[in-house]
Design a protein around this nucleic acid. Structure first.
Lengths: 236, 236
DNA sequence: GCCAAAATTCAACACGCGATGAAAATCGCC
DNA sequence: GGCGATTTTCATCGCGTGTTGAATTTTGGC
């Protein structure tokens, strides 16, 4: 055990047998990494504890259970994204919708990437064992984020900058899900398959996705007829 | 044990202690269900064996390991999808690209849904523990399917029916991934959140996605400038 | 100074899981 | 009919995992 005077510790001092002070923050960081890399079912508490440099029992002390630390992590990550997103949406009010969404996309990409694949790994957590619970947890936290995007699209529709015949309830989903997948899969694909270095491939894919989202795959001179009948917007 | 004369069994007869004949096909069906519902890490062989009505050891006998049965399942499902897809692509040669892709989408949706969520559950398997191996397995089998889609897009570009400035290597990905996600998430969202019955919500979402893919979110009178510089097609 | 609370580690429990070898039953070949 | 091959179940192993209570150490209130 390090001598107290050598320990860069905030108050209070560590307690317990041969104790080293490990803040819950450090445990959450380690958890993010392990959950992202191995999924929720595949992740285990001993790996998180090793990453944090503490005993697995301390995780139970602070977070109650494996599920508890996962929920805490979701609260933190989605909360942070939601706050930053609300800020961007507020700050861009009045700007053209595509410009607003470009800044939204930049924020989402930045948030997802500075967390070392954490959030995107966890956002795909719906596939894991106990997925129904996980899916509900994630969906609950994703809702306000989708609502913010929906607000931007709704304002865009009012301004005539977004097609009003698209189903507003799921339009944010169409925008966001491919985005999350691009961040995960394009670097992997490009590393194996492409002549582009991964960073360029990612940037190109993001730009391409943004363009495709707004302009579609049809050449402009052969713009398809509207395929959608006018639909009443459902109260999502 | 059922009397032999009562057992609806194909040849040969069951062997071993108190044996009931369980075909590998039945085991694969049970495996599909368990992997889809619980993910690869969350799935266990005893659950598969219970579903199939046999002993877990029989799974080892026929498939060698947990990974072995998973790989066998991937071979079967992706192989089937690939054959059906190649058939549709062949049969629609010469038709307009949007019509071809509509039939492609119909096939993919039909295949993904008749397997009781099996393939889409497994297609998201990249998140599970040991995901790198799983990811490679799935990517390997997904490649020829993406290649078929890419062929359709390439022919469409040659005919001027698809924008030639979009990155062909990842365009099938842009089309396919949201599709897979729609099948999984829209019914869940709609069941909880929408006034639409799930089937109508799904149909609406698929139509909306198809429209958005081709025509983009911009109103036609405000079609955005091309955001993409012309890019050399990478040799994917 | 005492004592309860807090926070850490240690040791262990109970259980699930992938995997395996032996036992048992049937088949087909000779 | 004997025997090897095949295929099924049974019993078990070794290990990992979530979780918990006891032990230990420190802190702060009184």
């Amino acid at each position: 055990m390090l001598k107290k005077s050598l320990e860069p510790l905030p108050t209070p001092s560590p307690r317990g047998r041969k104790a080293i002070k490990v803040e819950p923050r450090i445990i959450l960081d380690a958890a993010l990494k392990v959950f992202a890399e191995q999924g929720v079912a595949g992740a285990n508490l001993r790996a998180i504890a090793r990453g944090a440099g503490c005993d697995p029992a301390l995780i139970y002390y602070h977070f109650g259970s494996k599920e508890g630390i996962f929920e805490a992590l979701l609260d933190e990550l989605f909360g942070e994204l939601q706050r930053e997103l609300a800020k961007v949406v507020g700050e861009t009010t009045g700007q053209p919708t595509q410009e607003r969404m470009r800044q939204v996309m930049d924020l989402i990409v930045r948030q997802l990437r500075t967390r070392g694949r954490g959030l995107q790994g966890i956002a795909r957590g719906e596939v894991v064992a106990g997925a129904e619970g996980t899916r509900i947890s994630i969906a609950k936290r994703l809702r306000p984020i989708l609502d913010l995007l929906r607000q931007v699209f709704a304002e865009g529709m009012a301004k005539g900058e977004v097609r009003a015949d698209l189903p507003l309830p799921i339009l944010p989903f169409f925008f966001l899900r491919p985005l999350v997948e691009i961040l995960e899969l394009i670097p992997v694909m490009s590393a194996h398959l492409s002549d582009f270095p991964p960073e360029e491939a990612l940037a190109m894919a993001l730009t391409a996705w943004f363009d495709l989202f707004w302009n579609g795959a049809s050449p402009s001179q052969e713009r398809g007829d509207r395929l959608l009948p006018a639909v009443a917007k459902s109260p999502l």
